[in-house]
Design a binder for these strands. Structure first.
Lengths: 234, 234
DNA sequence: TGTTAGTATTGATCTATGTCAACCAAAATT
DNA sequence: AATTTTGGTTGACATAGATCAATACTAACA
């Protein structure tokens, strides 16, 4: 029996040492509620986890791997909002009004996701004000982040946006420099709202100016200050 | 004594018939908590209510007038997020982490705003799960709206964005057609992420194609279907 | 009532960025 | 090993949209 187990790698939420800090405010009884109908699914790199427009049936927890969150726009153009890494909750945007997904989530690497019942989650929000506050904080931080991206994409021009993407990968996604890239040029283009060709052209310029080094799948930011300056200037 | 009154136009939140539906789930005791330290301020058209980056000391309720909410970006370029009309809560984004304002709010017309204590507001969120849920719904709807704008601004080109702005004014802001415009071309440009000149040029094209009529401050959408089509095509 | 200041409009020009098409490299498949 | 497929790269070209500068309008004001 493969992939039908209630949970493969863990002894339940109470013992989980890889859960989102959001859950720290829950008592062990409440964690048991979260754990009750929970199940785990593994995704291969490239597989879609849920699609924009479909019913949002569960709250999702990324426990391993890497996932891209993106908006499907017009003419099959996407807008990559963010790349999330574990531990991280996602997919909760529609659960308090129409239970729909407002973005698409796709695995960028092999990933494991816990599915938590929306009702059980909501029950904890209702019973535990600390948890509710943490959840609201999480939502608001997401909004603030989105606002920042909003301004960056509408006001910076190409070099600034590409610099932002590189800094984001090094500082937030892979948390290392150099880093091995597991995300396609197309994804990077969608992250910066550029055409793939334009993104590549700027990358080439950075390389020629020795701001970055590239060999194969590895990218190293060699002049961090220069890149930060480009990001700021726009 | 002018403008130091605790409240000018009302007999407290319990009796307020102009409060955001968000507050419908509050008991009269809880409304009294909201009402406790509340005060009212009137703004003249053009006056700033709060500025991005400053301390977010209160939750605000727009009770009359019209207010623009915008992000201050780079090189003093703004991004107008939305125009809000009463009854409407605003200014609550930072209250669960750093108590800062993440956008600027400025009166577009003479406006009245109720200032509610953050602590009292939070107390109600903690004590009343229905209220907490409504508040979360409000926040998430805001996010979904922002996502839509995000895609529109990054993927549509000029005519689509101008069409969106006109439809927004007619359907959501003034809720009438024709409507008298109380918002500058600069604001409209910032709403569509265009230069003022480009916005005006497209407006002129719409006029020449008889899609809209303009005289003075009045705009009428005469070919609604055509405008909607332009909005969809992008 | 003339003047000033702010906002709206128009035209001319420039440039950032997208599109299209060709080519290459690596990986997957036969 | 040969071949198809997929994703990355480069160059040539087209264009959406910004910028700059001049002009027109409107409203406040002396």
């Amino acid at each position: 029996m493969i992939n039908f187990k209630r949970s493969v790698n863990c002894g339940g939420c109470s013992e989980c040492n890889n859960k989102s800090p959001l859950f720290n405010s829950l008592s062990s009884e409440e964690l048991e509620i979260i754990n009750k109908d929970r199940f785990e699914v593994t995704y291969k790199s490239g597989e879609m986890i849920f699609k924009q427009g479909t019913a949002s049936t569960h709250i999702l927890m990324l426990t391993s791997g890497l996932v891209k969150i993106y908006l499907e726009g017009y003419n099959s153009k996407n807008l990559l909002l963010k790349v999330i890494k574990p531990p991280r909750i996602f997919g909760a945007l529609g659960i308090y009004f129409d239970n729909r997904n407002y973005y698409t989530a796709t695995a960028l690497e092999n990933s494991t996701v816990c599915f938590v019942s929306v009702d059980n989650f909501k029950q904890c929000v209702r019973s535990n004000p600390d948890f509710a506050e943490k959840f609201i904080e999480h939502l608001n931080r997401n909004s603030v982040y989105a606002f920042g991206r909003f301004v960056d994409l509408t006001q910076k021009q190409m070099p600034g946006r590409v610099a932002d993407a590189l800094l984001y990968l090094a500082n937030d996604v892979y948390e290392s420099n150099p880093f091995k890239i597991t995300i396609s040029r197309q994804d990077l283009a969608e992250m910066t709202s550029l055409s793939k060709e334009s993104f590549i052209r700027i990358l080439k310029e950075f390389k020629e100016e020795n701001i970055i080094k590239m060999n194969g799948d590895f990218i190293e930011i060699s002049k961090m200050d220069a890149l930060k300056k480009i990001s700021q200037v726009g």
